[in-house]
Each structure stands twice: as C-alpha cells, then as structure tokens.
C-alpha cells in the first residue's frame, strides 16, 4: 500500500489549473504553498499496480511541468 510524496511544479500560469486537476484524483492529497508556485502532492494507493496507474495519470496532467519525488513508503 504505497504512500509517496512529491513536489510538483506547474506549467507557466497554470498553477490553479494544476491544483484543480490534482484534486480530482481521489488518491491525491494536495498541499499548495501559500507563497510559492510549488505544490506538495501525496499519493496513497492500495497496491503497487494502482500506484503505477496513478503515476501514469499524473504524467498526463497538462498543467504539470515537473514532478520530483521526495519520499515513499510501503505500508505492507
């Protein structure tokens, strides 16, 4: 049951769009910075397969410019 945290960088001028897009995913907790464009994203999935699908979905978000992983845990 993987849990991962990332720092997400929005594309130019698309911060709000990115926040909204990420909030659409049930598996994501979104923590925007109050004074900076970066956003912390925490994903929580039930299996490694779901995690893989989640990662693929994140990569397809157009307003996302870059995603840097910070930490990851498997609760199994």
């Amino acid at each position: 049951m993987p849990i991962k945290s990332y720092i997400a960088y929005p594309s130019e001028g698309k911060r709000q769009e990115l926040i909204e897009a990420l909030k659409e995913f049930e598996e994501c907790e979104v923590i925007p910075s109050e004074n900076h464009k970066i956003i912390i994203v925490v994903t929580e999935t039930d299996s490694k397969e779901e995690e893989k699908v989640m990662e693929a979905k994140l990569k397809e978000v157009n307003s996302l410019m870059m995603l840097s992983m910070v930490a990851g845990f498997d609760t199994n």
């Binding site: 849990i3 991962k4 945290s5 990332y6 720092i7 907790e29 923590i31 912390i40 925490v42 929580e44 910070v70 930490a71 990851g72 845990f73 609760t75």
Partner: peptide, 11 residues
C-alpha cells in the same frame, strides 16, 4: 503515521 511522514519530508 507514514502518510504524515511523507508530507513532513516534502515540507
């Protein structure tokens, strides 16, 4: 706990 750890690491 681990989820909070993940958030803490990112922050």
């Amino acid at each position: 706990f681990l989820k909070k750890m993940a958030i803490l690491s990112a922050v």
